[in-house]
Design a binder for these strands. Structure first.
Length: 482
DNA sequence: TTTTGAGTTGTTCGA
DNA sequence: GTCGAACAACTCAAA
């Protein structure tokens, strides 16, 4: 393509300039490049962005605009149905092409298909690219031709494909149009909370492409070597913390994939090779989540396993609220839920523990959990959230067996062995010795008194008895299978 | 074609 | 304290 006509880049979940094929295609079009973000939460089906996600989006859009300004360019903000907005913008700017990077959520896919068709009918050139997956979901299928439902063979089939493409550089320049189309102010989108609860988020994260790159570098330099041994430890910094950056596309999995391998080349060290393999598998899980949502689009709202449709989940509002607020009386559960509330993120090991507790101990539907995570996580991602919750509930593919019920005391003692995590997020228990920290209801009265704890007053008693709850869950799930 | 073995993340019980 | 078995049912790959 070589034209003097403007090209529009429609930014969505690819809020970066490097390794952005749609942006490069727009530059390749030859004329001015107009970057636009369209805020259209009504087109996200049942899953419009939650509060934490909107907070992040605000910051990330601000960063993207800042980056574009260095090119003497800018980010045009609009609001409304994407097709309507893009058509208006095409008219205003006389653009002859629109480029974007693919999304895979069911609502986004059907919307995008309508937009693509309509724009092509208008005579507009449309280019659509892959910017957020290592392997496109339709390129992987089992020998039988059906989609994989088990992770290991899925990932094995992925990694024998060609190595994911090397990331491409940010464009050298971005030609500006003679006049810029009108843009809303970022604050017009009202993404930030009206009551400022985001202090903990601000302190924990640096949204945007620069923050993402910094996070990756920090992970590779300081954590990667130990990743296989400490990734399950919520009391340590043992994970990449890249999830929100990946969700918003501030960094691409291709960039991460190759950065890991470059680091490997530089270190020449066996333990690194293992660590890279181990972390790459986590990227694999992200791929698997997108793959499953693509092939089974109803699973965001319905269990994959039919038998679970008839399961009678409880609707115990008091229990749900106790879980949400981190007041279940199980320290590891409460620590996780408070970390989530405060920072918009929870360690993955603890996500499994709290999910198991909600679904198995309280017998509350995984969808309640998914909805709460959706609203509170800065990395809320429909594919990952769906896979995680269906896995925990045992109603997804490759799911945890029904009898695998996490014991919150055991998990706490195993993965927070010194209690640092609980003490940080449940400060009212901070003075309790580690021996009792994960089971304060068993502590002798004198120990509790000395630690300044009055059960039922300063910290709740357990809202359910785990071993009874476990039995109840086993019976309920067994009954469902008959 | 049929069979066999293995599969992210656990817990409990009894020896 | 440690260890192995049992706790289903199903998918996928290899033999």
């Amino acid at each position: 393509m070589n034209s003097e006509d403007p090209a529009i880049v429609w930014f969505r979940q690819d809020l970066r300039l490097a390794d952005n094929p749609a942006l490069l295609a727009a530059v390749g079009h030859g004329g001015p490049v107009i970057a636009v973000y369209v805020w259209s939460p009504d087109e996200e089906g049942n899953w419009p962005p939650g509060a934490a996600s909107k907070w992040w989006l605000h910051q990330s859009l601000a960063q993207l605009d800042r980056s574009l300004r260095r090119y003497r360019s800018r980010l045009v903000l609009r609001q409304g149905p994407a097709l309507k907005v893009l058509r208006e913008l095409v008219q205003e700017t006389r653009a002859t092409a629109v480029y974007w990077n693919r999304r895979y959520e069911p609502a986004a896919m059907s919307r995008d298909a309508r937009v693509e068709f309509a724009l092509r009918c208008d005579g507009i050139r449309v280019g659509i690219y892959n910017a957020s997956l290592l392997f496109e979901p339709w390129t992987v299928s089992s020998p039988s031709g059906r989609p994989y439902c088990v992770f290991t063979p899925f990932w094995a089939a992925c990694v024998v494909q060609a190595e994911p493409a090397r990331p491409v550089e940010a464009p050298a320049r971005l030609p500006a149009p003679r006049t810029w189309p009108a843009s809303l102010a970022l604050t017009d989108l009202a993404l930030e909370p009206t009551v400022d609860w985001a202090g903990g988020l601000r302190a924990s994260w640096q949204p945007g492409e620069v923050g993402a790159a910094r996070q990756l570098e920090c992970f590779i330099e300081e954590v990667l070597r130990h990743y296989p041994t400490i990734r399950d430890r919520p009391d340590l910094v043992g994970t990449s913390r890249l999830s929100p950056h990946l969700h918003f596309g501030e960094i691409s999995p291709r960039q991460v994939w190759h950065a890991l391998r470059n680091a490997l080349g530089a270190k020449k060290d066996g333990s690194y090779a293992k660590a890279v393999e181990c972390y790459s598998r986590q990227l694999g899980w992200r791929e698997f989540a997108y793959y499953l949502l693509y092939h089974f689009p109803h699973t965001a709202d319905e269990p994959l396993k039919e038998s679970f449709r008839r399961f009678a989940w409880r609707t115990e509002a008091r229990w749900l609220r106790a879980w949400q607020r981190g007041r279940t009386g199980y320290p590891i559960v409460d620590a996780g839920m408070r970390q989530l509330w405060h920072t918009g993120w929870m360690h993955d090991r603890v996500r499994m523990v709290v999910a198991s507790f909600l679904v198995k101990d309280l017998l509350i539907s995984w969808r309640e959990g998914a909805a709460w995570f959706w609203d509170t996580l800065v990395d809320a991602d429909l594919a990952n959230n769906t896979l995680g919750w269906q896995w925990a509930a045992g109603c997804g593919s490759d799911a945890v067996p029904y009898f695998r019920i996490f014991n919150p005391v055991r998990q706490g003692e195993r993965f927070d062995p010194n209690g640092d995590y609980v003490r940080r997020w449940v400060p009212e228990l901070a003075r309790l010795p580690i021996r009792w920290l994960h089971r304060p209801w068993e502590a002798p009265a004198s120990v509790l008194r000395e630690a300044g704890i009055e059960l039922g007053v300063t910290y709740p008693r357990p809202i359910v008895d785990h071993s009874l709850a476990r039995q109840r869950a086993l019976e309920a799930l067994q009954k469902m299978r008959l």
